[in-house]
């Protein structure tokens, strides 16, 4: 077991050491910075969805002019899934610096989209619940 733990640690260190090029490391850090900025808001997506689910038919009816509860709930769920899917897929490929750089440029666009989807969903839900 201890042996395995060492392997586990080494693998983890090795995966970090894969980013040897300072420019690639900097790009990766910038992508992760956006992730770290919005990841703490994931539980907010869930809590806002729960608050909307708890609204009574009368409250939903009173808010019908502000928006559609189902649409707002779906937006919250999609934003949450967007972040989880992005994290599952994020893996800097093996290969040349150019290959890694273009991958990270695309990932920067993707994580910024994840961020704006999350912030929009939160803002819409908060406005709806006011």
């Amino acid at each position: 077991m201890k042996y395995l733990l060492s392997i586990f640690s080494i693998c983890f260190l090795f995966s970090c050491n894969n980013i040897e090029d300072p420019e690639i490391k900097q790009l990766n850090d910038k992508v992760m910075e956006i992730h770290d900025e919005v990841m703490p808001k994931m539980s907010m997506l869930h809590r806002l969805g729960k608050k909307i689910k708890k609204l009574s038919p009368e409250e939903l009816s009173a808010k019908s002019e502000i928006g559609d509860a189902e649409v707002i709930k779906k937006q919250l769920e999609d934003a949450s899934e967007g972040m989880m899917a992005w994290m599952a897929e994020y893996k800097i490929p093996e290969g040349s610096k150019e290959v890694q750089k273009s991958y990270l440029d695309v990932e920067m666009l993707k994580i910024n989209k994840v961020k704006s989807d999350m912030l929009d969903a939160i803002s819409n839900a908060e406005n709806y619940l006011k």
């Binding site: 770290d36 990841m39 703490p40 994931m42 539980s43 907010m44 869930h46």
Partner: peptide
């Protein structure tokens, strides 16, 4: 404090 501090996510 469930509203201020982070939740399960981080």
């Amino acid at each position: 404090d469930d509203e201020v501090a982070g939740g399960f996510d981080h």
